[in-house]
């Protein structure tokens, strides 16, 4: 692959990762680097291991082999609930809004990993980012539309002030305009705050439009790693792994 991996400069470094459910690994020997202030899109067919990759990085699944380091810290043995302290926030597939809690309570959860959560903990800033949520502070999660839930899940992750955001299929069930807004927001955050994003997205074109780099997973192995603009223009790769 043409882009040389910047050795040792990544915020997140994944080396030789093998992981999966039970005895059969889904991921085989995966190497990956996400630098600070970079958006890396993980692409590939369903079943390629994209979600498994995010779940292993955030500790929801154990790694069978390999190393994951974040800002120099070895994440092996770090419990899921400690990840957010290290600066990693994971918005899972299906959004994970707590439907029994209100919008405001959900957002406050983003802040609760601190021993002494700040009173409003910068939530006003999140409401500024997502004005649609500001009008619905006291609505319960299950009263929200799909788009609002996605905004809430992302807003809650941002409230944790992460340095790396793991984002699984943010466009699922969202109108194109809303998808574009959310992706645009990620690009702004990257530029303004240096947020790094590992983005799993089925909508390849949208994902590559904001990503710096694209990684193609095929049957659990890295099949290609390219600059996003090159990947978007590479018809052979698209045909081979992305189906269009």
């Amino acid at each position: 692959m043409t882009t040389g991996r910047p050795q040792g400069t990544g915020l997140l470094e994944v080396d030789g990762l093998t992981a999966g459910y039970g005895a059969a690994p889904v991921l085989h020997d995966v190497d990956l680097t996400v630098g600070a202030g970079r958006i890396v899109a993980v692409l590939g067919a369903n079943g390629a291991g994209k979600t498994t990759l995010l779940r292993t990085i955030s500790g929801l699944l154990p790694a069978a082999a390999g190393r994951i380091t974040f800002d120099g810290v070895d994440l092996r043995g770090v419990k899921v609930e400690r990840m957010v302290r290290h600066g990693i926030a994971h918005v899972p597939e299906g959004r994970g809004v707590v439907t029994e809690l209100t919008v405001d309570e959900n957002l406050r959860l983003g802040n609760l990993w601190r021993r002494r959560p700040k009173k409003r903990g910068g939530l006003d800033e999140i409401y500024d980012l997502f004005p649609a949520l500001a009008g619905r502070k006291n609505h319960l999660g299950h009263q929200l539309s799909g788009g609002e839930r996605q905004m809430l899940a992302i807003g809650r992750a941002l409230a944790a002030r992460p340095r790396l955001l793991l984002l699984d299929e943010p466009s699922l069930g969202l109108a194109p305009k809303l998808t574009a807004q959310i992706l645009g927001l990620l690009r702004d955050l990257r530029d303004r705050t240096g947020l790094a994003v590992l983005l799993v997205e089925q909508n390849v074109r949208s994902a590559l439009s904001i990503a710096d780099e694209g990684v193609v997973l095929n049957l659990g192995r890295i099949a290609a790693r390219e600059r996003a603009d090159k990947l978007a223009g590479d018809a052979d790769l698209r045909h081979a792994y992305l189906g269009f």
Binding site: S58, L60, E81, V84, G96, E100, L101, W113
Partner: peptide, 24 residues
Amino acid sequence: TATGLRMRAAAFAPDVSRLLGVPV
């Protein structure tokens, strides 16, 4: 209280709560 919110979140959605740093 923050602890009360943590307890409710942990009961309703343990996995999500873990990802948010709640010791479930």
